[in-house]
Measured scan of single mutants.
Amino acid sequence: GTVKVQGITIKVPNPDKAYKIAKKLAKKYNLTVTRKGNTIKVE
């Protein structure tokens, strides 16, 4: 899958794990995490 952070896309082998990490970071930096299948977008 991929993770998008402010325009940066990161390929990740485990979208579930990445999503959990993204959620933690999002809370810390007051961002929104959206997930569509293997693509995770943080904005």
Rank of each mutant, 00 (worst) to 15 (best):
G1N: 05
G1M: 11
G1H: 08
G1S: 07
G1K: 05
G1E: 06
T2M: 12
T2D: 05
T2P: 05
T2S: 07
T2H: 09
T2A: 07
T2C: 15
T2W: 15
T2V: 13
T2Y: 14
T2N: 07
T2K: 11
T2I: 13
V3S: 05
V3I: 11
V3L: 11
V3E: 04
V3K: 05
V3Q: 08
V3R: 06
V3F: 03
V3G: 06
K4I: 15
K4P: 06
K4Y: 12
K4A: 08
K4F: 13
K4W: 14
K4C: 15
K4Q: 14
K4E: 14
V5M: 10
V5R: 07
V5N: 05
V5Q: 05
V5D: 03
V5K: 06
V5S: 05
V5L: 12
V5P: 04
Q6W: 15
Q6F: 15
Q6K: 10
Q6S: 11
Q6Y: 13
Q6L: 15
Q6E: 09
G7E: 04
G7R: 07
G7N: 07
G7W: 09
G7M: 08
G7A: 08
G7C: 15
G7L: 09
I8D: 01
I8N: 02
I8L: 11
I8Y: 04
I8C: 15
I8A: 04
I8H: 09
I8Q: 03
T9E: 10
T9I: 13
T9C: 15
T9K: 07
T9Q: 06
T9W: 09
I10C: 15
I10T: 02
I10R: 04
I10A: 03
I10W: 02
I10N: 02
I10Q: 01
I10H: 04
I10P: 01
I10K: 03
K11Q: 11
K11I: 12
K11W: 15
K11V: 12
K11T: 11
K11F: 14
K11M: 12
K11D: 08
V12A: 04
V12D: 02
V12Y: 06
V12Q: 02
V12M: 06
V12W: 08
V12S: 04
V12P: 05
V12G: 03
V12F: 10
P13Y: 09
P13L: 13
P13S: 13
P13Q: 11
P13F: 11
P13V: 11
P13A: 14
P13G: 12
P13M: 13
P13T: 13
N14H: 07
N14R: 05
N14T: 04
N14V: 04
N14W: 12
N14G: 03
N14Y: 07
P15Y: 10
P15M: 13
P15H: 05
P15Q: 05
P15C: 15
P15R: 07
P15F: 14
P15N: 06
D16F: 08
D16H: 07
D16K: 10
D16T: 07
D16S: 06
D16P: 01
D16C: 13
D16Y: 08
D16G: 08
D16N: 09
D16W: 09
K17R: 09
K17S: 12
K17A: 11
K17M: 12
K17P: 02
K17F: 14
A18G: 02
A18T: 03
A18D: 02
A18R: 01
A18L: 12
A18V: 10
A18E: 01
A18P: 00
A18Q: 01
A18F: 14
Y19L: 10
Y19H: 07
Y19G: 02
Y19N: 03
Y19Q: 04
Y19P: 01
Y19M: 09
Y19D: 03
Y19F: 10
K20L: 12
K20N: 12
K20T: 09
K20Y: 10
K20M: 13
K20I: 14
K20P: 02
I21D: 04
I21C: 15
I21G: 02
I21S: 02
I21E: 06
I21T: 04
I21W: 14
I21P: 00
A22D: 00
A22V: 13
A22N: 00
A22Y: 09
A22W: 15
A22C: 13
A22Q: 00
A22L: 15
A22K: 00
A22R: 01
A22I: 15
K23S: 08
K23F: 04
K23Y: 03
K23W: 03
K23D: 03
K23L: 14
K23G: 06
K23V: 13
K23H: 05
K23A: 08
K23C: 15
K23M: 13
K24S: 12
K24P: 00
K24L: 12
K24E: 10
K24G: 11
K24M: 12
K24R: 11
K24D: 07
L25W: 12
L25C: 13
L25V: 04
L25F: 07
L25Y: 08
L25M: 06
L25H: 01
L25Q: 01
L25D: 00
L25I: 09
L25T: 00
L25R: 01
L25E: 00
A26N: 00
A26W: 06
A26R: 08
A26Q: 03
A26M: 06
A26V: 08
A26G: 06
A26P: 00
A26Y: 05
K27F: 05
K27V: 06
K27R: 09
K27T: 06
K27W: 05
K27C: 04
K27P: 09
K27H: 07
K27N: 09
K27E: 12
K27L: 09
K27S: 07
K27Y: 11
K28V: 12
K28G: 04
K28H: 10
K28A: 10
K28W: 15
K28T: 01
K28C: 14
K28R: 10
K28P: 00
K28S: 08
K28M: 12
Y29A: 04
Y29R: 03
Y29N: 04
Y29E: 04
Y29T: 03
Y29S: 03
Y29I: 07
Y29V: 05
N30W: 11
N30S: 05
N30G: 13
N30H: 13
N30M: 07
N30Q: 08
N30C: 15
L31N: 04
L31G: 03
L31M: 08
L31I: 12
L31Y: 04
L31E: 04
L31W: 10
L31V: 11
L31P: 02
T32H: 08
T32F: 04
T32N: 09
T32Y: 07
T32M: 08
T32G: 02
T32L: 10
T32R: 08
T32P: 00
T32C: 10
V33Y: 00
V33A: 03
V33Q: 00
V33T: 01
V33D: 00
V33H: 00
V33S: 00
V33K: 00
V33N: 00
V33P: 00
T34I: 10
T34E: 05
T34F: 02
T34K: 08
T34A: 04
T34R: 05
T34C: 14
T34V: 08
T34L: 01
T34N: 02
R35W: 09
R35E: 02
R35M: 06
R35Y: 03
R35Q: 04
R35H: 03
R35K: 09
R35C: 07
K36D: 12
K36P: 01
K36G: 02
K36Y: 08
K36T: 12
K36V: 14
K36N: 11
K36H: 12
K36F: 11
K36M: 13
K36Q: 13
K36C: 13
K36E: 14
G37T: 00
G37N: 04
G37M: 01
G37S: 03
G37L: 01
G37I: 02
G37A: 04
G37H: 02
G37V: 01
N38T: 05
N38I: 05
N38Y: 00
N38E: 04
N38P: 02
N38V: 03
N38H: 04
N38K: 04
N38A: 05
N38S: 05
N38W: 03
N38R: 07
N38M: 04
T39V: 13
T39E: 12
T39M: 10
T39R: 05
T39N: 08
T39L: 11
T39P: 01
T39H: 09
T39F: 09
T39Q: 09
I40L: 04
I40F: 06
I40Q: 01
I40K: 01
I40E: 01
I40G: 00
I40A: 00
I40M: 02
I40T: 01
I40V: 06
I40C: 10
K41L: 15
K41S: 12
K41P: 00
K41W: 15
K41T: 15
K41C: 15
K41N: 11
K41D: 06
K41E: 14
K41M: 14
K41Y: 15
K41V: 15
V42H: 02
V42F: 13
V42Y: 04
V42W: 03
V42C: 13
V42N: 04
V42T: 03
V42S: 01
V42Q: 01
V42M: 06
E43R: 10
E43H: 10
E43W: 11
E43L: 08
E43T: 12
E43K: 10
E43N: 06
E43G: 09
E43S: 12
